[in-house]
């Protein structure tokens, strides 16, 4: 088996798909993995792939034109997921997509499709749960949020707030992947990789307690009905790892 490996940027992943495909080793003889590789297998050959814009674009164009733009959208969206096998699953789904067309995503009989769907659903849930649970703090005129997603969902989250708060200065910081979405009032937002020094400076923003933090905590406590107390139900809806950085649980 030949294993093609790459970093987790979209460009690198699409390039990796390209190289594996055109290696002509046969789809059954290749596997795709995202670095870092956790365990090397001595019977496999590893090939590291560097991002290459031309190759990545070639894959994007082929999927868009030969399968469908919606199919491409689904795949790109899913590639943000943290699951270790997401890249290989996408590769298998592409093989099926080129053969049977976009509708193949409804054919759960295929192992790759059902796996893809499972990842897609979980990833979708993770992304939308942060639309709910991301919390901003007012720091010197800027609304700042920190969060720690397992997957790369910053883009989805930022899109949501760009529509919602177009005329506010705000910033959303993904502490795990060390990226920030920065939105100046009435302007387009941008994504920025954070340097170590920027990251450290931004960490301090959570220590600001603005006057509305307390009001919110009081409301949160008051609105629960004592006779119906049910912490287990609360926990199923709002799992612990997502409570980090959430005002009412801080």
């Amino acid at each position: 088996m030949t294993v093609f490996t790459c970093s987790d940027s979209l460009e690198a992943m699409l390039t990796c798909i390209y190289d594996a495909w055109y290696s002509r080793l046969g789809h059954d003889n290749v596997r795709l993995e995202i670095e870092p590789i956790e365990q090397l297998n001595m019977f496999d050959t590893y090939v590291h792939v560097e991002a290459d814009e031309r190759k990545a674009m070639a894959v994007a164009d082929a999927v868009n034109m030969k399968i469908s733009p919606a199919f491409y959208g689904e795949i790109v969206y899913c590639l943000g997921a943290y699951e270790r096998d997401v890249l290989d699953t996408v590769y298998r789904v592409l093989v099926l997509g080129f053969k049977h067309g976009a509708g193949v995503l409804d054919a759960y009989g295929y192992e790759a499709v059902s796996r893809f769907k499972a990842i897609r659903i979980r990833y979708g849930r993770e992304a939308s749960s942060f639309l709910e649970f991301v919390r901003f703090n007012l720091v010197e005129g800027v609304y700042v949020a920190h969060f720690e997603p397992k997957s790369r969902v910053l883009l989805t989250v930022a899109e949501h707030f760009a529509d919602r708060m177009p005329s506010e200065h705000w910033m959303i910081i993904d502490d795990i992947h060390r990226e920030a979405a920065v939105h100046p009032c009435n302007e387009q937002y941008y994504i920025r990789k954070l340097s170590a020094e920027e990251y450290d400076r931004l960490k301090a923003t959570e220590d600001y307690d603005d006057s509305f933090t307390e009001l919110w905590k009081v409301y949160f406590k008051e609105i629960a009905i004592k006779e119906r107390e049910n912490y287990r139900c609360q926990l199923t809806h709002f799992s612990k790892w997502k409570r980090k950085h959430v005002t009412e649980f801080a």
Partner: peptide
């Protein structure tokens, strides 16, 4: 946006 102590 959140879930209160009664799970609602």
């Amino acid at each position: 946006h959140s879930f209160a102590a009664d799970g609602r």
